[in-house]
Computed example of a mutant assay.
Amino acid sequence: MNPPRDKTFLRVEGLRKRFGATAALDGVELEIAEGELFALLGGSGCGKSTLLRCLAGLEQPDAGRVLLAGQDITAMPAFARPVNMMFQSYALFPHMDVAGNIAFGLRQDRLPKRDIAERVAAMLSLVQLEGFGGRRPSQLSGGQRARVALARALAKRPRLLLLDEPLSALDRNLREAMQRELVGIQARTGTTFVVVTHDQQEAMAMATRLAVMDRGRLVQVGRPAEVYEQPNSRFVAEFLGAANILEGTVTASGAEGQHIAGPGFGILAAGSAAPGAQVAVAIRPERLRLERAPMPAPPAPNQARGTLRGVAYRGEGFTFHVVLEGGAELRVSQPNQRRVTEAPVAPGEPVLVSWDDEAPVVLTS
């Protein structure tokens, strides 16, 4: 899913980059609208940081173009682009105070002292660090250092801000708080943000749209809920959140969808594959229901029968591991809404797992 062409602010066309025999970027095509908070999501080595560095001008692609507001900036040096970058390490100058760090780029641009002072004060207010201008980075918490790095990156008023794993050094609670801060600051400034992260929850919590990358390619682009609920491949289904993958055979296909059968399960899902076709189906753990049950066969559509092998208590709920006939495994997540401390079913018991009709997603690739 791309923004309408007349609203496209950043366009990447056929970008390729190799490091020796490795294709870091393999024909990347991407469009981002002005004012978006866009996330690049993928595992280590998938190409997301290389793409970010090509956008920043820190790497030159072997082929393809980068256009910003219609201008080809592919060969433009980094310092000449209306682009700034917030690095994973924050890269704050330890010998400078907070105000000096924020002002550094402005001094390099030779702005008048009065303008610099006003801009620094505005940035400190934006990131809620008024009164911290005289402190050194060593006197700040991790979250405060992240805010200073963000303020410095925004001080030059870039049209595009690139953030490379900006919150990876923070603990969970602080990270979640900073996610909300980043979203709020992006909304207030209207600056287009492109965030690189390997954290699926972070990308879904922050982004207006995201792209999942694998081996130098964008394998799916869309709104977080779109990509999560309708993954287009096994890779996306398993990478973005948790997914149960069941492989079965289409036994019938008609107006109501396709019937898929496998050892211990029956699925009715949207689609029209011909009988006999082998398909893979993704079902999210939280979309499943579990109850104690005898083991008659065969199961009805959108049911699976098996044996409970393990239970994990996770505070907010339980995770059940079910083994079906034939060895397929299901992970079932159920919220703990009544402060129950004991699981309703014990390992070794026969169970019935069921789900609503819209839960199964037949993977297309």
Rank of each mutant, 00 (worst) to 15 (best):
R5L: 15
K7G: 07
T8A: 15
F9G: 10
F9C: 12
L10I: 14
R11D: 07
L15R: 12
L15Q: 10
T22I: 13
A24W: 09
L30R: 13
L30T: 13
E31Q: 15
L37A: 08
A39G: 05
G43Y: 01
G47F: 03
K48D: 02
S49G: 04
L51V: 06
R53P: 01
C54V: 14
A56L: 08
E59S: 07
Q60A: 13
R65G: 07
V66R: 13
M76G: 01
Q88R: 02
Y90L: 03
A99W: 05
A99K: 09
N101P: 06
A103N: 11
G105P: 07
G105I: 11
Q108K: 15
L111P: 05
L111M: 13
K113E: 10
V120H: 09
A122N: 08
A122E: 11
G133Y: 08
G134M: 09
S141D: 05
Q144H: 10
R147Y: 01
A149T: 02
L150D: 03
A155I: 10
A155E: 06
R159S: 12
L161Q: 07
L162H: 09
D164A: 03
D164Y: 00
E165H: 03
L167V: 04
L174M: 14
Q179N: 07
T191S: 11
H198P: 00
H198S: 04
D199R: 04
E202Y: 03
A203R: 05
M204V: 05
M206L: 15
A207G: 08
L210S: 04
A211L: 11
R217A: 09
L218R: 06
V219E: 03
V221L: 15
G222S: 12
R223F: 06
A225G: 12
E226A: 06
Y228N: 04
Q230Y: 10
N232T: 11
S233M: 05
R234L: 01
A237L: 01
L240G: 00
L246F: 01
A252H: 08
G254T: 07
A261Y: 04
A261N: 05
G271R: 04
G276L: 05
A277V: 00
Q278R: 15
V279A: 00
P285M: 06
P285D: 04
P285Y: 04
L288Q: 04
R289L: 12
P298F: 10
P298S: 10
P298I: 11
P298R: 13
A304D: 08
T307Q: 15
L308Q: 07
R309K: 15
R309S: 12
V311R: 02
Y313P: 06
F320Q: 03
V322P: 02
V323Q: 15
V323D: 09
L324S: 05
G327P: 02
L330F: 03
R331Q: 14
S333K: 14
R338C: 03
V345P: 02
G348T: 10
S354C: 10
D356R: 15
V361F: 00
V362T: 02
T364G: 04
S365C: 06
